[in-house]
Every structure is written in structure tokens, then in C-alpha cells.
Design a protein around this nucleic acid. Structure first.
Lengths: 117, 117
DNA sequence: AGACTCGTTAACGTCAGGGTGAATGATTAA
DNA sequence: TTAATCATTCACCCTGACGTTAACGAGTCT
């Protein structure tokens, strides 16, 4: 794949436990980069790279702190999450919408012919 | 992290383009393993490992074909997708639910200095 | 029984991803 | 100006994930 889709990059970004932890933490409030590094017991360079990945997929954005221009404050951006949810709902339409899918689900929950362990 | 959360494993599974492609393909109908390997121009062992990852996260399930017991038919399972959507909606509540978050979004879309009315 | 097919596991090579410490750039404080 | 701080990029190591071929187990067919 020469250029992975935006969805691929979003999922790859969120697959890392540290980055997903950062997202969860940013749900509370925006955080400075250093604060995030400390919170995850990680060197500043390591966190900086994670933040770059999140930034490049548009999941977070960086802003310069108003009171101290050395500090970079990170916060969440909605667009990639919405795109991911769009794909997810498309996949889930496999069940909610279709008759054959419902039958497949019924078969699965009750066992195709004989039940297996 | 000793044991990554189910959500981490789901996201990691979906982050791979091949595996996400498999999921997209299974939306149409269940497929035998060999058919999937051929569809993605990949050796059977490689596809087998992808399917194992998807199986271990509960994203797909394997069944023995009724007419030929050598064939393993794979189909989608709803639970992990629902869990992922649950987390996603939680994250998205960052915007839809909160006052401070709304303010943050407003600031972001129209500039930090707030050149409003 | 023996030959053939489907799919898996085993063994191995390769490469990207994530970690560290050192160096750099920008800003603030003395 | 000089020193200290925040965060980045740079250079490097190292584990883990993905791909291959070969070998194996299970099932079908003649």
C-alpha cells in the first residue's frame, strides 16, 4: 500500500495503548506535552513521537500555551472519530438491516446443526 | 502492560489493512479461508494468521463447511464492533455533551482569540 | 489403501514501530 | 548575557509483526 487510507492511519494510531490512553486522558481536558509524558511514565521524546502520530492523523491538535510559549497544549479533534464511527456503522449494518444476516446471527447463537464445545 | 484490554486488541486487529479488508469483504457474505487468501493475493499461511488474530479478538468466527469438512468458513461477529462503538461514543461525548468542551471546539474552529460578535 | 486438497502450525528472514539518551531550537528567568 | 526549561528532532537498539516456504493433520475421492 503506497498511501494507506485515512481510516487505516486512524486505526493504527488508536491501536497503540499509549496513544489510546492519551486520547482517553484528553477527554477530561487539554494537556501539555510534558504532563502527558509524565503521566505515562515515558521520556519526552517518546511521547513527542506519539503526539506527532496523533497529530498527523488529525486526532489531536497542538496549540502554543498563551502564558508560556514553550509549552505545547494538546486537545482532541472530532473529525477522525466521526469518520471511524461512520465506517463502524456501515459494518454494523451487516446485522441491523438484513434478513440473511439475521438468520446468520440466529444460527450462530443457537448452533448451526449440532453444537460445538 | 501485561494484558492489553479487549479494545486495544480490537483496534490492533483492525489497524492492519489486510484484516480490515477481510472485514469489509465479510460484510457481503461469509467466505472460506482459501477464498480470502486468493482475494488478497496472499499465501494461505499468511491469511491463516490474520484470521487467527481476528478470531482471537472475536471479530470473526470459524465454522466447518457442512458439505466439505476441510473448508473453514469465516463470518463476522457483532460484539467487538459494538464495544468499539461504545468507546467511540464515549469519546465523542467530549463534544456533544459538555459546555467547556463546546467552548474549546468553538475556540478551535474560529480562532483562540475569539473574535466573536 | 493411496493420492489429492484445504487449512493449519513451524521455522526463518525482514522491516517498521517504539524505546532510550544526546543534541538542537525556542522561550523564559536571573 | 547567561543559565535553565519545554519540547522537538536525531541516531541508535531491539522487540514484535508480517511475509515466505516446508511440513503436518484432517477430509475427500477413486
Amino acid at each position: 500500500m503506497a498511501t494507506p487510507s485515512a481510516l487505516d492511519r486512524t486505526l493504527a494510531a488508536l491501536a497503540d495503548p499509549t496513544r489510546r490512553g492519551v486520547v482517553d486522558r484528553l477527554r477530561q481536558r487539554p494537556h501539555p506535552a510534558g504532563e502527558l509524558a509524565a503521566a505515562f511514565d515515558m521520556s519526552p521524546p517518546a511521547m513527542s513521537r506519539h503526539l506527532r502520530v496523533l497529530r498527523q492523523t488529525g486526532l489531536v491538535e497542538e496549540r502554543i500555551d498563551a502564558e508560556d510559549a514553550r509549552v505545547r497544549v494538546y486537545s482532541l479533534r472530532p473529525e477522525p472519530f466521526a469518520a471511524l464511527r461512520g465506517w463502524l456503522e456501515e459494518v454494523e449494518s451487516f446485522w441491523s438491516g438484513q434478513l440473511g444476516a439475521f438468520k446468520a446471527h440466529a444460527e450462530r447463537t443457537r448452533g448451526p446443526k449440532g453444537r460445538r464445545s
